[in-house]
């Protein structure tokens, strides 16, 4: 929809579009300069950025609901962790296997699940996430239950291991940039246009010749792959994994990041992940209240800025929307 009431001049707007990137570069740059603990925090944020990128694809582009993305992160993470520790696999093939396993699972689950709609889809995906969590707790011979698996090797290729904070950060930046690039490319591709069409109106997309079932499944698989990649990165960056890592709070945290950064935008997941991850560092004593605050913040955002905080920037564009409801 075009609006004639555009008060922002074009170059100001393009500058605004660069703002999230500049902000992200600033945060990451600080991590590099400071090293040590700040670098670790930024590293976590980047891992989450990959997760949220997947969430954004499925939710922001295709407008579908999945509360079970943590399942794929768990499958990817645990697969990679078990293969590298128990079976002594090198890191890269183990991660590849983790992502492949998660995508395969998404295919098996997605086929029946994505036929569901509304509350059923939401509860179904939530159940998948919880089943995975419970299995991670109970299948002790493989996952060692609550104890978790420790001694997971760091990221690296062959005999070269990335062990320094800054090295790890650099690698994660490269991976996040690649993910974001892929996300942007998907958005502008034929497939991405199908995603967006589906997101705008399922019937409309169907009328335009989009194979709705296949497109939904495709979006689900891609987002599962991102989630699994994030899970793999997490276990290798931290060197330890336990079921709590992939609990329900991961889903809420992911959604909070997505809503802070902006739903459906390319840069949103990265900015959101960085801002939300830095919150506990900025406010002292915030750590205990972390999940509480994220949940509360998410509710407030959902009420007052349902397309995410970023949408507050283009108020002028958002205004006329109320007329077409």
């Amino acid at each position: 929809m075009k609006t004639l009431r555009s008060t922002t001049s074009p170059d100001w707007r393009s500058a605004l579009r660069l703002l999230p990137w500049g902000l992200s570069a600033l945060f990451v740059g600080y991590g590099f300069v400071a090293g040590g603990y700040p670098a670790t925090v930024i590293g976590f944020a980047l891992v989450y950025a990959v997760f949220v990128t997947g969430l954004n694809l499925f939710m922001g582009y295709t407008n579908q609901v999945s509360f079970g993305q943590n399942a794929f992160a768990a499958v990817g993470g645990y697969m990679s962790a078990v293969l590298t520790t128990t079976y002594q696999w090198p890191v890269v093939p183990a991660m590849g296997a983790g992502v492949a396993a998660a995508v395969l699972l998404a295919l098996v689950i997605g086929y029946p699940t994505l036929r569901l709609k509304g509350h059923y889809l939401a509860m179904g995906t939530l159940a998948i996430g919880l089943i995975t969590y419970e299995i991670a707790v109970e299948w002790q011979s493989v996952t060692q239950g609550y104890l978790g698996i420790s001694g997971i090797p760091p990221l690296g290729v062959g005999s070269y291991e990335v062990t320094s904070d800054r090295g790890q950060l650099a690698l994660l930046v490269a991976i996040v940039l690649a993910s974001t690039f892929i996300s942007a490319r998907i958005r502008d591709s034929r497939m991405g246009r199908a995603f967006l069409a589906l997101g705008a109106s399922e019937n409309g997309a169907m009328a335009l010749g989009v194979d709705v079932a296949r497109t939904k499944l495709l979006a689900f698989l891609v987002s599962a792959a991102f989630a699994a990649l994030a899970g793999c990165l997490f276990v290798h960056v931290v060197g330890y994994v336990s079921p709590e890592v992939f609990g329900l709070h991961m889903v809420i945290l992911g959604f909070t990041m997505l809503y802070v950064g902006g739903v459906g935008s390319v840069a949103g997941p990265l900015v959101g992940a960085l801002i939300v991850s830095l919150m506990p560092e900025v406010f002292r004593g915030f750590k205990d209240y972390q999940d509480l605050a994220y949940g509360a913040a998410l509710i407030v955002i959902l009420i007052y800025a349902p397309r995410g905080l970023a949408s507050l920037f283009d108020r002028a564009k958002a205004r006329p929307r109320s007329a077409d409801l």
């Binding site: 609901v65 939401a122 994220y294 949940g295 509360a296 998410l298 509710i299 959902l302 009420i303 349902p306």
Partner: peptide, 18 residues
Amino acid sequence: RNATMFVMILATLAAQIV
């Protein structure tokens, strides 16, 4: 605000976490 069903679900789920 006529929130979509998805937003309502997410908000109540967030309330659960809170």
